[in-house]
């Protein structure tokens, strides 16, 4: 579904160019999930923004559904770090942002999505009136409202308390099972990567390049956090992240 071939992203030009992403090759089959994990500021968000069509790669190619990515796509949704909600729009308006922007999506009705995420009661509120956890759920609702084939997430649950975070991770797992999208999750949270990624790609410090790929075939259950396999994956990820080079 998503294919990256030797993707390079440089910021700036000529002698002052800084490399953020260095020759990353990656495949995400339809309906599968991949977590990208790496140290803060390593360039993993840059990579994700390139997949979202917001940044043009300096070299290499990104394809989604066998088409080269030239800009933001109708079948791809991006969830940002702080949900990216617009403070001047209500929950309902935020959830329907893409529809507000006037494009014809093969959409679920927004009300159904809000209902699914337990947000019906607050749909006329503004983001500033919501708890952090609710805001992130509105961000997910916004992404889902367009029935995307591909979901891209840039540390969507950063800075939430553990229980809220795990509750939204559970919710996300259910949504993934129900809506069958492919997703790429960027995170610096080892447990989140192990809980949500079928495959976890460990990135190096800047410029980001693939350091290791950890398979995580047993993920998918809500009680996976208690399984020995989960702990093994977490341990492996930690070792890979700590390894020099």
């Amino acid at each position: 579904m998503i294919a990256l071939r030797d993707v390079v992203v440089d910021y700036g030009r000529g002698a002052r160019a800084v490399r953020a992403v260095d020759r990353v090759t990656l495949d995400v089959p339809r309906g599968q999930s991949v977590a990208l994990i790496g140290p803060s500021g390593c360039g993993k968000s840059t990579l994700l923004f390139a997949v979202a069509g917001l940044i043009r790669p300096t070299a290499g190619e990104i394809r989604i559904a066998d088409e080269s990515v030239e800009g933001p796509r109708r079948d791809t949704a991006l969830i940002l770090q702080n949900a990216g909600l617009l403070p001047w729009k209500t929950v309902w308006q935020n959830a329907n942002l893409s529809l507000f922007l006037g494009r014809e999506y093969p959409k679920l009705t927004a009300d159904a999505v809000l209902e699914e995420l337990g947000l019906s009661d607050v749909k006329n509120r503004y983001p500033s009136e919501l708890s952090e956890g609710m805001k992130r759920r509105v961000g997910i609702a916004r992404a889902l409202s367009t029935s995307p084939q591909v979901m891209l997430m840039d540390e969507p649950l950063a800075s939430l308390d553990t229980l809220t975070k795990e509750r939204i991770q559970d919710l996300f797992l259910k949504l993934w099972a129900r809506h069958a999208f492919s997703f790429v999750l960027v995170t610096h949270d080892i447990e989140e990567a192990a809980f949500l990624g079928q495959r976890i790609v460990v990135l190096s410090a800047r410029p980001a390049s693939v350091k290791a790929v950890v398979d995580n075939p047993k993920m998918g259950g809500l009680d996976y956090r208690k399984a020995p396999a989960f702990r093994d994956v977490v341990l492996r990820l930690r070792t890979e992240l700590e390894r020099e080079t």
């Binding site: 917001l54 893409s98 922007l101």
Partner: peptide, 16 residues
């Protein structure tokens, strides 16, 4: 910048 990224990723045009 987050707000601008947010609407751009949702497919906003320059005017939008």
């Amino acid at each position: 910048l987050e707000h601008i990224t947010s609407v751009l990723s949702a497919g906003a045009s320059r005017w939008q």
